[in-house]
């Protein structure tokens, strides 16, 4: 890696080794993006209008980068394909790419999962690989969450507000809330960077609200990052102790930022 990574980036991208494999190049880039924009975001003074207008842009970069990295940690084919296409000599940044990652489709499921998700009669297209789709929820997020809960209850540690917040949910609530929260925040940040927004944006993206969105986003990503290291099926896993360390370090940074921007 080229610079010291932000704890949120370490939590999301995990343990990237020093070899120059293409997978490391991709994860290092994402980690650098998350680190860079996290630093920029958490240096903003929300009382300042110019800073406030930048927040949704930085935040959207972080949430997209983080979700792409998490997706790539279990579906490297998907992430790697994008990398390969973008590296191709025919790639033209002025044209829409057919393989580009899509928020709806890759991060949130494009369609509602069937009630009986694992019914053998279901078609192949019924099985969704989206990061926060119900199938990945069953395979990754819910079991990972339970493993984390077991780890927390068997290890004595200082319980911070974010850890306690996690413990107040069950695995279904954790997954459902993460899914909808990601959708809401992505939508809020997207509207914040689109200037076709014709209603009074100043009062909606005021300092209090932008601060709330930013904190919610970092907390959501930190939670997903932490749980990702407990599912056992992703690459670049950190030990649970390391993951909790980065999780709490991220929480501490947010706490300090909140105090500064209050």
């Amino acid at each position: 890696m080229t610079s010291v990574q932000h704890p949120l980036a370490s939590l999301i991208c995990g343990d990237i080794d020093n070899t120059h494999s293409e997978s490391n190049i991709v994860f290092n880039r994402l980690s650098n993006t998350i680190s860079k924009f996290s630093r920029k975001l958490l240096s903003l003074e929300l009382i300042d209008e110019d800073d406030r207008e930048l927040a949704p842009f930085y935040a959207r970069n972080i949430i997209e980068g983080a979700c792409s990295a998490l997706l790539g940690r279990y579906d490297f084919f998907r992430l790697f394909s994008v990398y390969k296409v973008q590296s191709s000599s025919n790639y033209d940044i002025t044209k829409r790419s057919n393989i580009a990652l899509q928020w709806t489709g890759d991060i949130l499921a494009a369609s509602k999962a069937k009630e009986d998700m694992w019914n053998p009669e279901n078609k192949l297209s019924d099985y969704d690989r989206a990061l926060l789709g119900n199938h990945v929820g069953e395979l990754l997020w819910k079991p990972g969450y339970l493993t984390l809960m077991d780890f927390l209850s068997n290890h004595s540690m200082t319980k911070t507000a974010w850890v306690e917040n996690l413990e107040m949910r069950d695995e279904r609530q954790f997954f459902e809330m993460s899914k909808t929260e990601a959708g809401k925040l992505f939508s809020a940040f997207s509207k914040g960077v689109h200037y076709e927004f014709l209603i009074n944006a100043d009062s909606i993206y005021d300092a209090t609200t932008v601060q709330d969105y930013v904190i919610r986003m970092v907390q959501l990503l930190a939670e997903l990052g932490l749980v990702s290291h407990c599912s056992g099926i992703l690459v670049n896993n950190l030990s649970k102790e390391e993951a909790i360390y980065y999780f709490q370090e991220t929480e501490e940074l947010i706490k300090r930022w909140r105090l500064r921007t209050d």
Partner: peptide, 14 residues
Amino acid sequence: ARREVSRGMKSGGR
């Protein structure tokens, strides 16, 4: 007062 919602139990289950 409710604290952890999903704790593993010695006898199995949560």
